[in-house]
């Protein structure tokens, strides 16, 4: 995969495949698979649009590399207390471009719906993914992912990764 062989709709389809597989893994609750959508050194950040616009560095979630992602996934699966819930990702408006011979940058929109026990389904957060994708062993992986959420007031908690 390089800028010559992967272009136009094919490029978009390839990036969409990664995003949709990523969303499917999270929606199925397969947290243990989540870190392996990333390169070992990838930076995963969930950042409020407020902080982003004001140039403030704080992230809601900041995993510097796959190790920290595995730690978060394990904590969520085995250690933390939270009420059972279902998350469902909707990803659209995917716009990828090659930034170099090896690196794709892709922005897309996301909406995350949350369903709790005995409750109606509600929007938890909405925002934009700003992703970097690289080819590793013939597969596209996230070399970095910034999830910029628009939501100024989070409805209580964000449990699973965006």
């Amino acid at each position: 995969m390089n800028p010559e062989t992967l272009r136009g709709y094919a490029l978009r389809a390839a990036v969409e495949d990664v995003l949709y597989d990523y969303a499917a893994a999270l929606d199925e609750g397969a947290l243990e698979r989540w870190p392996f959508f990333f390169t070992a050194g990838a930076l995963y950040e969930v950042v409020s649009r407020e902080n982003e616009e004001r140039g403030l560095p704080l992230a809601l979630v900041r995993c510097e590399g796959r190790g920290m992602m595995i730690d978060r996934a394990t904590a969520l699966k085995e250690v933390l207390f939270y009420s059972p819930r279902t998350y469902r990702h909707f990803i659209s408006n995917v716009r990828p471009v090659w930034r170099s011979e090896e690196r794709i940058e892709a922005v897309s929109n996301f909406v995350l719906l949350q369903t709790l026990v005995e409750r109606e389904t509600t929007v938890l957060v909405a925002g934009q993914y700003r992703d970097t994708l690289v080819v590793e062993d013939g597969k596209l992986l996230f070399g970095g992912k910034r999830c910029i959420y628009d939501t100024t007031m989070i409805p209580n908690t964000v449990v699973y990764p965006l």
Binding site: S48, L56, P57, L58, T152, M153, I154, N156, T157
Partner: peptide, 8 residues
């Protein structure tokens, strides 16, 4: 200031 988190 490093940034904000806000929740209801």
């Amino acid at each position: 200031v490093l940034g904000y988190m806000r929740q209801r």
